[in-house]
């Protein structure tokens, strides 16, 4: 659709959009009723149509919460991969219907720096990288020394990849920890773990020579799917 501009000229020479503002947003209701000279202190009368001080944009930005972007991976949003088109046809025509695919969102956004919303953290409380934290996302988080969702560098007692995993299940808002393909046994609160077991807030996972404290975000008080 075309959006029309319903502009009104106030008595002080300011244009404004009457569809958005009932009175002039620059000089306010009083001036709009004919009280000339009521400029806000930061204005310079006589310089033509005056503009509001920076930051005072009426009808503009609201109070969008400062939550970190809880965007999901684009995979769920992009459905159906269309037929592969040769490069020469990407721009136009060429005998191939250029509209064989709808406009899509993203390429593989996961590779382009997009992340799932954080659901909790692991914090190293003992070990070579004491003080470091890692974000947990929903689903499985694999822990490895060099590869995986959580890299714990510098601890040679941790397998290179998939030593263990920490998982968050959206539906029941529960966290789990379990062994994966690692060689050394992991512990939770100094008890060995052989099958996936529930994780509770501030449990300490021992993996290699590293101790990781678990800090959850989601639970009774909060979950991304009920955040609104």
């Amino acid at each position: 659709m075309e959006i029309k501009n319903d502009l009104v000229l106030c008595p002080n020479g300011h244009y404004y959009n009457a569809a958005v503002h009932s009175a002039c947003p620059i000089c306010g209701g009083k001036a709009a009723q004919g009280g000339a000279g009521n400029f806000p202190p930061t204005e310079r009368p006589g310089t033509g149509p005056a503009l509001p001080p920076t930051g005072g944009v009426p009808g503009g930005a609201g109070n969008f919460p400062p939550t970190e972007d809880p965007r999901h991976s684009a995979g769920g949003a992009v459905s159906g991969v269309g037929p592969t088109e040769p490069a020469s046809n990407w721009s136009a025509g060429g005998g191939v219907n250029p509209f064989s695919q709808p406009t899509m969102i993203g390429g593989d956004l996961a590779a382009a720096g997009q992340v799932d919303p954080v659901v909790g953290w692991l914090v190293c409380v003992d070990g070579p990288v004491r003080g470091t934290d890692w974000r947990l996302h929903a689903g499985y988080n694999y822990i490895g020394r060099e590869v995986g969702d959580i890299h714990i560098q510098g601890d040679n007692q941790i397998s290179r990849e998939k030593h263990a995993m920490v998982a968050y299940h959206h539906k029941n808002r529960t966290y789990y920890v379990g062994p994966a393909e690692g060689r050394n046994i992991i512990e939770v609160n100094d008890e060995p773990v052989f099958n996936a077991t529930k994780l509770n807030s501030h449990d300490v996972i021992t993996i290699g020579t590293t101790k990781l404290m678990f800090v959850p975000l989601c639970g009774e008080k909060f979950a991304w799917d009920q955040e609104q």
Partner: peptide
């Protein structure tokens, strides 16, 4: 040039 998502948007309002 042949990737099926090569035309996918990497920046757009709504992300």
């Amino acid at each position: 040039y042949t990737h099926p998502k090569s035309g996918g948007l990497t920046s757009y309002l709504g992300m």
